[in-house]
Design a protein around this nucleic acid. Structure first.
Lengths: 144, 144
DNA sequence: CGACTTATCTTGACTCGTTCAAAATAAGCA
DNA sequence: TGCTTATTTTGAACGAGTCAAGATAAGTCG
């Protein structure tokens, strides 16, 4: 799905050009699960030093709107990206160090999607973020 | 709970001073449900023109850490605040205009708090944000 | 009640992730 | 191979939020 060919398919299907920066960005996101923008930019630069940060931002935004990648941005943290989309999974965030991990839906397919009173809103997505403390930080807290 | 006396109780219990800016900020948050920082600052200024934006930021952070108010910050939007805390309710956000509404828990007391696999994280909160389109925006979209 | 201590506030500069805009480049078509 | 125009590069700008130093006032103690 994020293979070289897959990328081209997706882009062409959306009438978008297949460019080096775009391919590099998608590869970087796939290679750095939950990586933030900074990480993605660095990863891209390793292979293609000439790619500008702007191109990375543009590509990330494009892929996000196409549904190929997903942006996650917990409160107080900068944006992170992942290629795992469409399976309705959620995330746990460590309050202390900001680490992020995937969490499959507790309830099944599309949990929590029905609010008790939706105020007339037409809801299309339920985003769940679990907050807590990661194993490493738990250990460090004990040693203080 | 956010009455004049209540505020003093909370602050004193935490060994914090009861100051004009703090009282004004809490009153402003109570009077502007889901108001963003800009709104809170304006509201405070109406009564106390001399209060600085920094004092507002400080107070908001203080009250948030004390658990008196809650900060909500959907992706791509600036921080908003509300005084309704401790009842585990969630929010719907309009993708189009950013409007925010309260949503009571669909499942009951503390839904979704148990992740299927928590990766060793010690989870203390489940934050749910529903994304959709508010009634007004639905109407406008039809008229286009 | 008045002086003191220090938490809190004011002021104003600054950070940093992200966006904007114009000129240069290269992807894809003919 | 050349052309058209979507993308990129470049470099400046934005804005919510933070930092730091000195001024102020809340609470305390005599």
């Amino acid at each position: 799905m994020t293979s070289q060919d897959g990328i081209e398919q997706v882009l062409k299907a959306a009438s978008m050009r297949v460019t080096q920066p775009r391919v590099a960005v998608l590869a970087a996101v796939a290679a750095n699960p939950h990586g933030d923008t900074e990480t993605i930019i660095s990863a891209v630069h390793r292979e293609h030093p000439a790619v500008s940060h702007q191109a990375v931002y543009d590509s990330l935004k494009l892929f996000t709107s196409l549904g190929v990648i997903r942006q996650i941005q917990p409160q107080g943290h900068i944006a992170r990206y992942e290629t795992r989309v469409g399976d309705n999974h959620h995330h746990v965030v460590c309050r202390r160090c900001g680490k992020l991990a995937d969490v499959d839906c507790a309830v099944g397919g599309a949990p929590c999607l029905h609010a008790s009173d939706d105020h007339g809103f037409k809801i299309d997505e339920a985003e769940v973020i679990y907050w807590g403390t990661c194993p490493e930080c738990q250990a460090e807290l004990i040693n203080e």
